[in-house]
Amino acid sequence: MVTQSANLSRNGVTDWIIQRVTSLILAAYTLCVLGFVLMNPELDYETWSGYFNHSAMQIFTMLALVSTCAHGWIGIWTIGSDYLREHLMGPVATGIRLTFQIGCVLLTIAYFLWGMNILWGN
């Protein structure tokens, strides 16, 4: 067995569960925001910012942000470890995969910090 060092929880079963739980949170959040937008066709700034400044929505958005980061990382890690492999591209694969994964981790962290700043920074 290959020891995984770059997946989210270092454990396939835990990753699997995280992926399912976060998918439900993200599905609920998507329906919530979509429903709001569809019910407010003439959306203005007051209504929009009021919606996201509501404390329940702030918590829900933060939950969705954390879920996005975890879900996105598990997904992109899977894709990277499926396609960026030695028997597909030769010995350079490990370096390419590592670079890709480090880049994606940094992007995920940037998303999280940016999202936190949007939510609590203003």
Partner: peptide, 28 residues
Amino acid sequence: RVSGALLFFGVGFMLFALDMSLSSEAGF
């Protein structure tokens, strides 16, 4: 899989849109 990969990079666009739309009336 393709949509998941696009969404991973699309989060940047979504955060940009959310950030700008919530920044001020003019940003919205």
